[in-house]
């Protein structure tokens, strides 16, 4: 980019499209939309270089509300489409917005494979533990026994942990945040800065079909006892009075302990973002047995698929010379028929 061109500084407002936002009043999606707009503005991202790709579901309306390039695709397939976009143009800043149904049910396969390839995409998975757009059926993250229209006797499906799935899929960046939590902006920003697939699970309140599903993690009175904010290199301390922590017992299983009576912060588990096993353990900690981890669970540096692909093209050209139309038709086994 020529340096003499002044690029105007964009604000969150500049990233808002002219479309009316059509989520239900009180839906958690609004808060996430606002944070994302702020983060991309703050980071100086350019609208023309930014692409939001989504699948199907309430969350997947997201691209319409961003004044960037956007592609509202088909159910579950956004990771595959985003991969195509990055292969075609690795310079683009690609975001992917999905939900628990879109990303983990119909599109589970694509989610896994985009993450393992480490395509440089920021994936925001809005987890509201319900199907909203189709009016309230249980989802792959709904708790066992959940009564919904499609499970009047209670769901008999075992829910899965999106974070565990992401880690098992070799994601290079795995984090979690909550729609109404102030920490959300920071997590999104770190995800955006990460080169490679960033997976962010966002607890999102579906005001209509699963209201207060995350009350334990958002209610002022209880939340500090039910979530734990992760900080790299710091001990795992939580609680309203910051008097509780996580340590490993003799069988190396996590355990909630109360500080005092000989237990100090030094005895606690230290958060290490670069430790896969540690991250997986954190991903298994769930309410009510444990405080649920918020923030960046895992982050490593790894090559991106689209860069490796471009590199192979580059190397082949260096090794064999750039192919042309003439060399294309020639081959080892041509022969000439004389007149």
């Amino acid at each position: 980019m020529p340096t003499d061109v002044e690029m105007p500084i964009l604000t969150a407002k500049d990233f808002a499209s002219d479309q009316d936002v059509r989520w239900c009043p009180g839906c958690g999606d609004y808060a996430i939309l606002n944070q994302v707009r702020k983060v991309v503005a703050k980071m100086g991202r350019r609208r023309e270089k930014t692409v939001f790709v989504s699948g199907i579901g309430c969350s997947s309306r997201f691209p319409y509300y961003m004044n960037t390039y956007g592609f509202h695709t088909i159910h579950g397939r956004a990771p595959a489409i985003a991969t195509g976009v990055k292969m075609a143009n690795p310079d683009l800043d690609v975001w992917l917005v999905t939900g628990d149904g879109d990303g983990l049910s119909i599109g589970g396969n694509h989610l896994i494979h985009m993450l393992r390839r480490n395509v440089d995409v920021n994936m925001l998975l809005f987890n509201n533990r319900i199907y909203g757009l189709t009016k309230g059926q249980y989802s792959p993250t709904s708790e066992e026994g959940k009564k919904t229209k499609s499970s009047p006797s209670g769901s008999i499906d075992m829910p899965l942990s999106p974070l565990s799935v992401a880690l098992a899929a070799e994601a290079s960046f795995v984090a979690r945040a909550i729609d109404v939590d102030r920490a959300l902006a920071d997590v999104i920003e770190r995800a955006a800065k990460h080169k490679g697939s960033s997976f962010v699970e966002i607890y999102q309140d579906c005001n209509i079909f699963n209201h207060k599903a995350f009350d334990y993690a958002t209610d002022k009175a209880s939340k500090l006892d039910n979530v734990i904010y992760l900080e790299h290199g710091k001990p795992l301390v939580f609680g309203k009075d910051r008097n509780k922590g996580i340590w490993l017992d003799n069988s190396r299983k996590p355990k909630v302990v109360t500080l005092g009576q000989g237990i100090t912060e030094e005895n606690l588990l230290i958060h290490d973002e670069n430790d896969e096993k540690h991250a997986f353990m954190l991903s298994r900690m769930s309410y009510p047995d444990f405080p649920e981890p918020m923030g960046v669970l895992y982050r490593i540096k790894d090559d991106c698929y689209e860069d490796l692909l471009a590199e192979q093209v580059h190397d082949a050209i260096v090794a064999k010379g750039a192919g042309t139309l003439d060399t294309l038709l020639e081959s080892n086994d041509t022969y000439t028929i004389e007149a």
């Binding site: 595959a80 489409i81 991969t83 195509g84 976009v85 292969m87 683009l92 494979h113 093209v313 050209i317």
Partner: peptide, 25 residues
Amino acid sequence: NYGVKTYQAEDEIAAVCAAIGVSFA
């Protein structure tokens, strides 16, 4: 060396979707 990129997708659906992403881009 002809600038061709190939992508062996996880399934048929991902393959066509990636191609659509390429065209979009």
